[in-house]
């Protein structure tokens, strides 16, 4: 299903939808990969990862058919 990007994550990465690399098997490895591939994301410190529309902790396994979303914090008002 790929990785949906929101807010500034979409801007930093430059696309709205990313394909999941094979080595990403859980949320922790997803974050590690994102921070390495897109160092601009590091300044966010907190970044919510959702798997199948549910907040996912670092230990959550990601399967091929899962919908993953990367939701950074947003401050505008």
């Amino acid at each position: 299903m790929g990785i949906l990007l929101f807010g500034v994550a979409k801007d930093i990465i430059g696309v709205a939808l990313l394909e999941k690399p094979a080595q990403v098997r859980d949320v922790a490895s997803l974050k590690a990969w994102l921070y390495e591939a897109y160092p601009g994301l590091r300044q966010l410190k907190s970044m919510m990862i959702a798997v199948n529309r549910t907040y996912a902790a670092d230990s959550q396994v990601i399967n091929e058919q899962d919908e993953v979303a990367v939701i950074p914090p947003v401050s505008g008002g």
């Binding site: 300044q43 410190k45 907190s46 970044m47 907040y55 914090p73 947003v74 401050s75």
Partner: peptide, 14 residues
């Protein structure tokens, strides 16, 4: 959702 705020002074604020 977001345990800690982003680094201060970066692009996200305002």
């Amino acid at each position: 959702l977001f345990p800690e705020p982003p680094e201060s002074g970066e692009m996200l604020n305002c």
